[in-house]
Design a protein around this nucleic acid. Structure first.
Lengths: 221, 221, 221, 221
DNA sequence: CATGAATGAGCTTTCATTCAT
DNA sequence: CATGAATGAAAGCTCATTCAT
């Protein structure tokens, strides 16, 4: 993979039919890229597969995203953006910290489950040492909100005297993320090893209950 | 990838120079494969890279392992074997369940840290839907011991009246694994997001403390 | 060999340098393929040999023909097309059926001799069980004209009361084809066995005379 | 393919169990080679395929036949030997030349049909310009008998005043061979073109009748 | 007689990418 | 905005063959 600087950013004009069509092409490609990269990884997914899945042509990928790496960065960013958007829509009952915490845990676990590409793309990025995120200023902006919600709930609980004071929100966030992420990310090897299909709804439900319970137990005084 | 039957099984060790050399070749390739697949994934790592890293030739990979997939399966199996061997060497003080639990947690977290290829190979396998493990009868045998240790500790604690009775060893095992795995697997994206280098020894130490504490807290009455 | 759909059909000829160049590339490859496949067979001829003989690159073969099989099909089709074109140019004196028949026989024998690739390509195709022709709708269209000419001459002769009525045009066609084809196709082993070089013009001349005579004798009342 | 001189001929001792076993290995390989070369041609058939089909090992092919070319020559020779042996078993009624001729024609046509490898191997050899037969002194010896029979029948017929005198036995032989060979060799492409399955017994029967009739017609005064 | 190990060149095919229009 | 043509490198894999015992 080359280290060249990526393609020029798309201009922002919004009038006219052609720009609309262009946006659609770009969006189709981006959507296809997320799908293909999620399914086959950065190395396993090919430009050709993506352009075909987008009903477009190889050349258009270079036009809009510069090169494969640029497309991957865009796919990552979009994936984070979607997660943040979903999180922002979360309405928490801050008067009841334990309930709010449960809501957060459930949101994260279910988001991972419903959006497996989130997990797979992150795995790809970590396989490559996080070098794309390091380059993307946009992606890093997306980080704060995620912990922010956990931080907020934790602060509430402490303020109301229900939660421990010696807990860092970073640890709490990582704990929740880990318990949700691992289940989703490793479900195939785990299923083989445990002799139990982790994709069965009942199994997931049971795990969710365990995680909610464990996180609450971790947090209370 | 072809469906041909892989290379013939390695014969029992005999004396004689050639047999020794052959074993070394096979072992060199396997060691190199683990390294390369761990670094670049199944798709990212190439036969050529591996054979060169093994000081051997492409052709020998096909001779010993049939094809790339066969080599990957062998790499997976060897990785599991090593983990089990390490775990088997673990001496637990079963008279003190909480201490034993701490030992288990530390063992797992530190194993993941010291053997990052374990994590990366598993991620690759999960990206491919676990299809290689499904085929490998050998790999599945390696599963039981891992949970076994957790199970044993849990049983001890319950017997001695120190641990909760309503905890499944599967959930407990997955919790420990998740907290160790996630930290290692996602350390690059996490470092970028948290603005904190998870590879710093102090950060790891702190996380380990948190995990040990949390797991103990989960388990006690 | 893959089952992917081959390359896009060649667009109508436009003016402009690149389109011209592209057509030439495609044609060069096709011409080279016929030559190489004829000389070494489908298995013996390599993509590399062909692309080099065409002053082009491996990659372009896949661009225009999808894969090796697609190229072979195209080569077969082109070979048939040429034969049909040559046959269509044949002017027969239908007022004299015996003369016309002689013309047909001579045309076929001489075409096989002058275009040995016709024979070799067909042999390759038959070695592979005719599976490429079975797929090619284009190739099958080329069949009728060939027998058509024989049929026409036979009908003439019957009408004029010179030829037998109990002869099927299919048998007559196959007879002529066989006598011409075998001489060309097996000339090397025959030369070795008969101790006589079948490539010598005089030998061919003698055989042609024999065949013309025999066919005429077969057909007359 | 290399141009090295082939392997040393197998020694001729016949006593002892080991020699017997060895002969079997050699024979198995030869039989497998005929089968595989006939099915896939000289280039299409691989040493590996053959050794597997013979339940033996690559190395043994080199032991007995020197190299791939040597094996092909042996396969060719064996194929000719079989044909000659079959022909030698032919009992002709020389008192009735026309009947004898019919017997010869039927023998050849049916032999080609029943032993398709004869045809395919010869095609392979001709594709390679007959260079293997040229080298094989054994193979050339096999040629004479084949024409010999036709010659004999022709002479009988002439002697008895039933056949034309101006016919060369070579032309007659080639005619019969051509009519039988072409049908078998090109049956796949012909079937596609004629829209008629030449492998159907009835179709073959009809062709045989036509050929017998035509050859007799060619030969009589 | 037989075999496991090794080899290097070659195979078909796909990769990401750039060119000219 | 978009597209057909072109490219060189590299991919996974198979080839015929030889070595040492």
């Amino acid at each position: 993979m080359s280290t060249r600087t990526p393609a020029p950013a798309k201009p922002l004009r919004k009038t006219g039919v052609r720009e609309r069509a262009a946006e659609t092409t770009r969006e189709n490609i981006l959507r296809a890229a997320i799908k293909i990269f999620a399914k086959h990884g950065l190395d396993g997914g090919s430009i050709d597969q993506i352009s075909k899945a987008a009903n477009s042509h190889d050349r258009m990928i270079y036009y809009y995203f510069g090169n494969k790496e640029g497309l991957f960065v865009a796919a990552l960013e979009e994936t984070y953006r979607r997660f943040n958007a979903a999180e922002a829509a979360l309405k928490l009952d801050t008067t009841q910290p334990l309930v709010a915490l449960k809501q957060v845990v459930q949101f994260i676990l279910r988001y991972y489950k419903k959006n497996p590409e989130f997990v797979t793309l992150l795995n790809s990025e970590n396989l490559h040492g996080g070098k794309h995120i390091a380059k993307s200023s946009k992606a890093r902006e997306y980080s704060s909100p995620a912990i922010g919600v956990v931080d907020q709930v934790l602060a509430c609980g402490i303020e109301q005297g229900v939660f421990r004071k010696d807990l860092s929100s970073r640890d709490l966030y990582m704990m929740i993320a880990a318990l949700g992420y691992f289940y989703q990310s490793n479900r195939f090897t785990l299923s083989a090893f445990l002799g139990e299909n982790l994709e069965a709804p009942a199994t997931f439900k049971q795990w969710e209950t365990f995680v909610v319970d464990t996180v609450q137990r971790t947090v209370v005084l």
